[in-house]
Design a protein around this nucleic acid. Structure first.
Lengths: 131, 131
DNA sequence: CTTGACCTTCTAGTCACTGGAACCTTTATG
DNA sequence: CATAAAGGTTCCAGTGACTAGAAGGTCAAG
């Protein structure tokens, strides 16, 4: 299987697959012409990575998760710990974004959005007393 | 006012203030010894940037917002347009993160988190049929 | 005179790709 | 058989917004 087919099979861009090889996440074999050849195992690994990335795991966590997947003697606690710490990070970001959203939507609602210069959004940013 | 005081006044790290000068967002004067001297105007600009960044505006939007703030003939519609587009981006990210969170929290709840290897989190990532 | 707290510039690293250039190989078509 | 299109390769540079660290200059206090 060459890179284009793997890209189609996993949904990962070819560039990304090459990048994953660069950082040692997959090691496809090579044909005589230099082309990468992906085994079913490689493809499965890449699909795993695609799924893990789609859940927002950082690449280094993906690497750990892959290693745990390969380790028949793993403890599910180790997997869960990675997932929980990622969940906490997501919650942190959600909190941040929600706070931004709340402030911004109030500001947007209060701005006339016409051709006059008065603007509560700018007043807020400039930390002026609202007139 | 030198960089440390400005940092204290705005909450921005000195490194960040230098970076903002690098990319042309502020242009503090220089003393004979090469030290930056920040006017009240500079400090106000940096406080504006700090506030806009804390609402998640990209630096280039901050640049536009600063320009609009300086332009007495602006239309508030232009400011509002930037804010609305940022709000949409935030909503997009919130949607993404919420979807991740939903999936992940289900997976985390379903994982025993003990010393046994069975793990629904890994099963999901490997796209296996849950046993 | 020295110490310590400032300040400066410069380079390189972060994260996870992505774009593009320059070039090679294979396959299909006239 | 020539050629063109569609695949493949490597390598370099850029993204955003900083941040770490090195090497060194300046200034005020004791």
């Amino acid at each position: 299987m060459n890179i284009k087919s793997v890209s189609a099979a996993t949904g990962l861009p070819a560039k990304t697959i090459r990048y994953y090889e660069d950082v040692g996440l997959v090691s496809p074999a090579r044909e005589g012409n230099g082309y990468r050849v992906f085994s079913d195992k490689d493809v499965h690994k890449l699909a795993f990575l695609a799924r893990a990335r789609s859940l927002g795991f950082p690449l280094e966590s993906c690497r750990s998760l892959l290693a745990l997947y390969d380790d028949q003697d793993r403890a599910s606690a180790d997997v869960k710990a990675i997932a929980i710490s990622h969940l906490q990070e997501i919650d942190r970001k959600l909190g941040e974004l929600t706070a931004m959203r709340d402030t911004l939507s109030v500001l947007v609602r209060s701005c006339a959005g016409d051709d006059r210069p008065d603007c509560p959004i700018l007043s807020d940013l400039a930390q002026e007393v609202p007139q």
